[in-house]
């Protein structure tokens, strides 16, 4: 039997750090969304990013979370580049 992933409120240090990274990434997305155009574009982007984060909300597997964080950062960079280009 492997370790069971419970929705316990106790996080290991690693989980705590990953959670912190995820929240920082979300904050970075929101920062970038400020340059995404007007209020409408901004809200559209927020809703999309929020949807992605919510989709993986209950993921506890460390490897998966790491992968998602990497993908998220990549996606953030892509968006930054695109916004720069339209300026």
């Amino acid at each position: 039997m492997g370790p069971t992933a419970t929705s316990s409120s106790f996080l290991s240090l690693r989980q705590f750090i990953l959670r912190r990274e995820a929240l920082c990434l979300y904050r970075q997305f929101l920062r970038v969304s400020r340059d995404a155009g007007g209020a409408r574009e901004r809200e559209e982007m927020r809703r999309w990013v929020r949807g992605e984060f919510d989709k993986w909300r209950h993921t506890t597997d460390e490897g998966t979370v790491r992968l998602l964080l990497t993908q998220g950062r990549q996606s953030l960079n892509d968006i930054k580049t695109s916004i720069e280009m339209t300026k």
């Binding site: 340059d35 995404a36 007007g38 916004i83 339209t86």
Partner: peptide
């Protein structure tokens, strides 16, 4: 993207 480019 199109709308964004216009609004930016």
């Amino acid at each position: 993207i199109q709308t964004r480019a216009a609004t930016i």
